[in-house]
Design a protein around this nucleic acid. Structure first.
Lengths: 149, 149
DNA sequence: GCGATCCAGTTGCAAAATGAAACCAGTTTA
DNA sequence: TAAACTGGTTTCATTTTGCAACTGGATCGC
């Protein structure tokens, strides 16, 4: 049971998020969780990940409060891994990856997917940081303000 | 010169993005690049990363078209690592990480930062996937449509 | 009820990635 | 021109990953 080591304290939010979520398997597990997967075996089959690594990542995600274990919804004695609210709040991050990739990681002509609103069937808008009144902000338009404790 | 291995072909955009950017150091390098860092030594000092790993990541980011090497802006014979448009397009991803962490990775009472619009001094709005007419979408409100090639 | 199968891991081991430190060749500074 | 700085590369030890075999409880078929 040697589990992968906890990273040290980080003041920067991006660093803290990265310490938890900047891992290939973790983001794919969360993606699959958004797609409704819940069981160890479902994740394993979907990802082709080694079982020990999957066990490690699932436990880490549970430890960090992104997933929670609950009795399987099919009534069996097994467990489901389900997103917590904190885990669901990663939706924008996953969508961010998706939209960036769709725009920049596919050759033109290569088949690519699109995120669609279920209710209307219309494509989801490209996400971007913006002001409260809707102006889109680029990297130069914003800076980080450290708040006093 | 053994460089870290290229991941295999991925159909899912999230997986493709993760293969490149779901790496602790790569996201921190890009974050620092958004903050204006450009030189090998600047990144090394800011991140405390081992030099060989930094060299590897910088080259990978250049290879994938996120950074580009250009003659140093200070006129010296050295090189700058600068974000390309493809790299700048990662802004929403980095902001996504930041906003998620600020909301879910800091104890209440713990000092945390905030993203501010430079021009108005007002906080940047929380990013979320939404429709073209501005309704916010949760994980259940959207699905992926595979487009025909 | 009982053997076969399935599920969710764990263990052992080899290969790969990471990290620290020393080293090095060009560049700039004094 | 010597000293220091920059941007790496090399070496080596430690950590993480990945594969495959193993395990033990749950479930299924009969």
């Amino acid at each position: 049971m040697p589990r992968t080591k906890k990273p040290p304290y980080q003041a920067c939010p991006v660093a803290r998020a990265a310490a938890i979520m900047a891992d290939r398997w973790s983001v794919l597990i969360v993606r699959d969780a958004f797609d409704g997967l819940r069981r160890f075996g479902e994740f394993q089959k979907s990802l082709g990940i080694a079982r020990n690594i999957l066990a490690d990542r699932l436990h880490t995600l549970v430890e960090t409060g992104i997933l929670t274990m609950e009795p399987a919804s099919d009534g069996s004695a097994y467990q489901d891994y389900v997103l917590t609210p904190k885990g669901e709040a990663l939706f924008p991050v996953v969508v961010g990856f998706r939209q960036w990739a769709e725009q920049h990681l596919f050759q033109s002509g290569e088949p690519h997917s699109q995120l669609i609103e279920r209710k209307t069937g219309r494509p989801v808008r490209k996400m971007a940081p913006s002001t409260r009144d809707g102006r889109v902000l680029g990297p130069q338009d914003a800076f980080v303000r450290k708040l006093p404790s």
